[in-house]
Amino acid sequence: MEFLEQQLPRYADGAWITIQLTVGGAALAFVLAMAIGILGTTRFWWARAITTVFVETFRGIAALVVMFWFVFAFPDLTGFELDPRFAAILALGLNVGAYGAEVVRAAINAVPPSQVEATVALNYSWTQRMRLVVLPQAWAQMLPTFGNLVIELMKATAVVYLVGIVDLTSVAQQIRSATGQTFVAFGVAFVLYYLLAQVLILGMRALENRAGKKLGRAPTGGGGILSLLRPPSVGTKVGVAK
C-alpha cells in the first residue's frame, strides 16, 4: 500500500506517455490506413502498386526494427536527429497503418457490387460514392479489426523504453531497480496495461454498436449499456489473420 502511495505518480506519468504514443500512433495509422487502403481499390495500377508495396514492407518488418532505424540510422543518413517519441509514433503508425490499409482495402472490396451499381444508376461521382455509400458501409466491417489493431498498437508502444522513452514499461523497470521488488513493480504495470486495454475495448465496442445501428443491425449481444459489459474478446491478432 505504501509502495503504491509512493510510486503511483510515477506510474501515472509513464502511463500518460503510453497513452500519448497510443493515440499518436493510432491517429497516424488511421490516416495511412484510410489513404493507402482506398488507393488499393482504385482502377489505377500504379495506385494499387503503392498499396501493395507499402503493406508488404511495413507488415514485413517489425515495428521495433523500424523504430531503431529511425532513431539510429536516420540521423546518420541525413544528419537530422528525430525526437525519439516522434520516431516511435512514426514506426508504430507505419506498422499498424500497413495492417490497417489491408483491412480498409478488404472492407471496401467487400461492399456488394450491387451497392456500387445503385450509385451508378443515381449518377454519383467517385467521391460521392465513397463518402456517402461505400465507406459508411465498409466502416462497420473495419471497426472490429481496427479495435484489435488499437490494442496491438497499445501493446507495441512498450518497446519504446529501448530508445529511452520513459513509458509505463520503463517506469516499471526504474522502480524495480530502485526498490528491488520485481513482482510488485511489474505487477502494477501489468494491471495498468490491462485496464488501458479494457478501456480501449469498451470504446471500440461502443463505436461498433453505433456503426451497426446505422446499418440497421441490432447491437451484438443485446442492446444498451449492458452490451458493453460483455466479457471482452480480443481475439485475433489482426491483420495477421488475413
Partner: peptide, 15 residues
Amino acid sequence: KSIGMVFQQFNLFPN
C-alpha cells in the same frame, strides 16, 4: 443523369 434504374434486389443503401 437522365437515366434511372430499379434493380431486382432493390439495392437500397443500408447506411
